[in-house]
Nucleic acid binder design. Structure first.
Length: 120
DNA sequence: TAGGTGACGCGGT
DNA sequence: CACCGCGCCACCT
């Protein structure tokens, strides 16, 4: 079922560490569909992952925050990140080397096993 | 059914 | 660094 992707995404969201950011591509990869980064954006935009999902921690591969229209108010993503210690440059960029959630291959395997056990 | 869209990513220039 | 083009894929007209 295509429902699986969103279920997985929601679960992974609960494991994105405080004070870190993650890319759309990373999440797609952890969901088991490396080519579906765009679907991650769609999921967040259309609120398919629940209200608890830390969408503000999701940025693109270049380190840039989402567009002004992505959140309720322009600058909300920036302030949310800064509140938890993530530095954001004036041009809305985050230093990935410092703040990206670097999940290991073991993490990916762990998620796969979790999904297998849950049957999603 | 066909074509357009996008909170993406990558490679080329 | 700045563009640009193209591949990608679930959704939406």
């Amino acid at each position: 079922m295509s429902f699986n992707f969103y279920q997985r995404l929601e679960l992974i969201g609960k494991h994105i560490p405080y004070g870190h950011v993650v890319t759309y591509g990373q999440l797609a990869l952890l969901c088991g569909k490396p080519k579906n980064s765009r679907q991650v954006g769609y999921a967040l935009r259309s609120d398919k992952v629940g209200k608890d999902f830390p969408a503000y921690r999701v940025i693109n591969g270049q380190g840039y925050l989402s567009g002004a229209g992505a959140f309720a108010t322009p600058g909300l993503q920036k302030s949310m990140l800064q509140k938890e210690g993530v530095e954001v440059s004036p041009d809305n960029r985050v230093e990935m080397k410092q703040f990206q959630w670097k999940h290991t291959m073991e993490d990916a395997v762990w998620f796969r096993e979790l999904f297998r056990q849950l049957g999603v």
